[in-house]
């Protein structure tokens, strides 16, 4: 028995190392595409569209993000660079998609929307991601969010009141409804034009490739006109 033990141990470890990744792969959500009549530019009463970059850009990146999600933070940093790099051809729309497993994600989304009502959405967006390690482990996030609002020079009374308002909640619910209509199940999710970021595209090269393809497609379409 002792003679066979090293073989058995190596075999068990090899199987475990192979089974784990395969299990992850089978549990992956499937990819979806935005139908033609649901392009990102729609504007409805409850909708609050936050656009970064040229608002008339030909290519739209629509991101569904959760402020407490570390992956979303990485993507947000990268997309910020992309929008600058591809200016004025690319714009970014951020949609709130707070995941239920993140305790403070919804409060963070409320804070961002409340800041947005005072015209400082993206400043709060950037601050929330930058300070994510701090507030995500805090027991008193509201105080921290108020301190961020103060740093941004917002009207604090208004900010506190807006965070509790139906209007701000309505914005988040609208984003969530849109996510549902597109079959978004996780954050971050990104649509480049009508195409969703595939599992294989969830890295800088993949996102860049999608954006390049979309920009080229739009350029060639406008040349034909």
């Amino acid at each position: 028995m002792k003679r066979h033990l090293p073989f058995v141990t190596a075999g068990v470890v090899a199987l475990t190392a192979l089974a784990g990744p395969l299990l992850c792969q089978t549990m992956r959500p499937s990819r979806v595409t935005i139908p033609g009549d649901q392009a990102a530019s729609a504007k409805r009463p409850a909708e609050s569209v936050h656009i970064r970059g040229n608002s008339n850009a030909t290519v739209t990146l629509e991101e569904f993000g959760d402020f407490e999600c570390p992956s979303c933070k990485n993507l947000a940093t990268f997309l910020d660079q992309m929008v600058k790099e591809y200016h004025p051809r690319v714009r970014l729309i951020f949609r709130n998609f707070p995941l239920p497993m993140h305790q403070h994600a919804r409060d963070a989304a409320l804070a961002a929307e409340a800041a947005g009502l005072q015209g400082h959405y993206w400043e709060m967006h950037d601050m929330l991601y930058r300070e994510q390690p701090v507030w995500s482990s805090s027991n008193d996030v509201r105080t921290l969010f108020i301190s961020y609002a103060e740093t941004l020079g917002l009207d604090l009374h208004q900010f506190k009141s807006d965070m509790e308002s139906d209007k701000v909640r309505g914005h988040i619910e609208f984003d969530q409804a849109r996510a549902k209509s597109l079959g978004v199940e996780t954050a971050p999710s990104l649509f480049v034009g009508k195409r969703e970021m595939d599992a294989n595209d969830r890295n800088p090269e993949g996102v860049r490739r999608l954006v390049d393809e979309a920009v080229k497609a739009k350029s060639s379409a406008s040349e034909k006109k």
Partner: peptide, 24 residues
């Protein structure tokens, strides 16, 4: 890291933008 590389999900990367940059 191999799973992240094969699935392309270098975004997760423990929440670190530096990690994202290295693995990407």
């Amino acid at each position: 890291l191999s799973v992240q590389a094969f699935t392309g999900e270098t975004l997760s990367c423990g929440g670190s933008p530096d990690c994202f940059r290295v693995l990407g």
